[in-house]
Design a protein around this nucleic acid. Structure first.
Lengths: 344, 344
DNA sequence: TTGTATGCGTTATCAC
DNA sequence: GTGATAACGCATACAA
């Protein structure tokens, strides 16, 4: 019942353990085909699986990636990021030890330390929303890539959404439909980097179209749910010079806009066009009318970050990009945009 | 730059490696306090961290749990399950290697095999929706616990939602408000176990109330999104003897009911009460009116499963329960239930 | 071409 | 009380 070891395979086909090792690792090209076949057959028959911990001790490579992220649960969008990383790692014979820090102070440091003790080959340090995370000092020289997070080390490869570009594209979508009075509902100030980038993208698109600075509505402080956006939208839409389109910071804020429109008897998209951000599962696609929004490329980011890390580890060919890479956020066009109403 | 090893701290304080090991593992009570202090001090000063792979090779324990689940991404609810498992494992000095199989055939077997090669101490085999998963034969005698999945080995501990009880409770909620004509919108037949259990809970509650079998609406085949439920609800609500309340299989189906009500000019909850299931993030709480629903205890299940596994591994005291444990699904009461309209 | 010897960093079983 | 010493399972430089 005990697991079969290299030694057993060697004994079974009358060669030394060294030979078996050479054959199984394809480390020597000077072994006769007959022995190779014999060894392979024996290994197969006995069901030999190398003991990776012994191998790791010897090679100083665990083929394991340590991943540390803040809480996994608050945002539904985390799963694709994880899955993307898992996939790529698995495809290249690596496994990942995942740890959620739940944002407890000092937990990040502890988590990294315990992964260092496990001899992980590299680190993925991630955040569930795009922000700055000072991790360069913690990973003790082990190759590290930021995932949805920007490092304090400017050279560290980091993969984040292109919030600016996506906001710009979202506004262009509205402009192309003929809208001229477009407002942006933002989120409260915080440590997230997306807020400012989306505001900037919004403003850039408007200003390029010769429409000035644009109107940005910012809730005074953070609230759970769409309530804050609803209030903001209500006030903006109830005024004489109301916007014909709203670009919402995210899909939740867009829900607030929908609620406000309903309360005011405005029809989307006939009276008001709306664009969201994030493409939340079961949200954007289930609103009535279905919400046009910018998708966060979480899965792609997870894949890219892991590929970059594997490149730095030498298991993949090619160079890992230095510094921050912005990943495109594709638009998901649904039913919430139409040309603006003729007159008012 | 090289990491400091046990040998180094032994040399630093003039004792043998064996002694250091004994001290650091508190394995002997016959070591004088002075040596203990000396060793501790040296270890601290040098920043010694045990190499866990060497330790694992020796102790045959990796303090690592292998977790295999089908795809992580299709359901948003997966993250709490993962987080719950990670938390408990971490709290007891264990780490988890997570693998998503993406439902590719044979991938489950491969995933388990590669985790076995890593010498994981135990397995968590999970599904993202409650179903049967034949994994007992794959885990090669390594302790295994099912997470949202039922094993083919009746003795294997498995943790699943109490779908029957929750459906029963949901219907009781409606009955207590005075409803008598209650319909259930189910999902199409598939390999999920929740469907039948929720139907059974629905029927049991009605029959206990002397209301017969109840009306169960089943879509003929699977569709993405809420469309199927909308059609079903539309037909039921447009008939002369329409239900005053609908218990939906899940929150997505509940959205379909909302859409149908809107199209028919029925007001929720005044004309129609609705109860959902799953408590999807950003869905149930953002509908108008906010949806009353039964929460899936994903996080709790993740925790319980991991605790059971650790108990089987001897790192936690207590026994792991044998067989299937049903975990309660707490109701989340919001605004979608009211007494039925007086007459019609 | 294959086998022998040694080391990877621990823990554990002994003597001393 | 403490220190040699032998595993743990594998990889590899070198010898044969």
């Amino acid at each position: 019942m005990a697991r079969v070891r290299l030694k057993d395979v060697a004994a079974a086909c009358g060669v030394s353990p060294a030979t078996v090792s050479l054959v199984l690792n394809e480390a020597s090209d000077r072994i006769p085909a007959t022995t190779i076949a014999r060894v392979r057959a024996a290994a197969d028959e006995l069901g030999y699986t190398p003991n990776t911990v012994a191998r790791s001790l010897r090679t100083r490579r665990t083929h394991t990636i340590g991943a540390v992220t803040d809480t996994l649960i608050t945002t539904a969008s985390s799963a694709p990021m994880v899955q993307g990383a898992l996939d790529v790692a698995w495809r290249h014979d690596h496994l990942v030890l995942w740890l959620g820090t739940e944002d407890q102070p000092d937990h990040l440091r502890q988590a990294i330390a315990s992964l260092v003790a496990r001899q992980v080959d590299g680190f993925l340090v991630g955040a569930m929303y795009h922000r700055r995370l000072p991790f360069a000092s913690l990973t003790q020289g082990i190759p590290t890539v930021g995932l949805n997070a920007v490092s304090d080390d400017p050279a560290a490869p980091c993969f984040v959404p292109d919030d600016f570009g996506a906001a710009h594209a979202a506004v262009r979508l509205l402009l192309d439909h003929g809208h001229r009075r477009i407002a942006h509902i933002s989120e409260p100030h915080g440590d997230g980097l997306a807020r400012q980038l989306r505001v900037d993208g919004f403003r850039a698109a408007l200003s390029e179209a010769g429409l000035g600075e644009g109107r940005v509505l910012v809730p005074p402080h953070w609230h759970e749910g769409s309530g804050f956006a609803e209030e903001l939208a209500l006030r903006a839409l109830d005024a004489p010079d109301r916007p014909t389109a709203i670009f919402a910071f995210n899909d939740i804020a867009a829900i607030g806009v929908y609620h406000a429109a309903r309360r005011l008897g405005l029809s989307i998209p006939d009276d008001l066009s709306v664009v969201g951000f994030d493409d939340y599962v079961n949200v954007a696609s289930e609103l009535y009318p279905k919400l046009t929004t910018m998708a966060l490329p979480h899965r792609r980011m997870g894949q890219l970050a892991t590929e970059a890390l594997l490149a730095r580890l030498g298991v993949l060919d090619g160079e890992a990009p230095e510094g921050v890479t912005r990943v495109a956020c594709p638009p998901v066009v649904r039913d919430s945009i139409a040309p603006p109403p003729r007159d008012r």
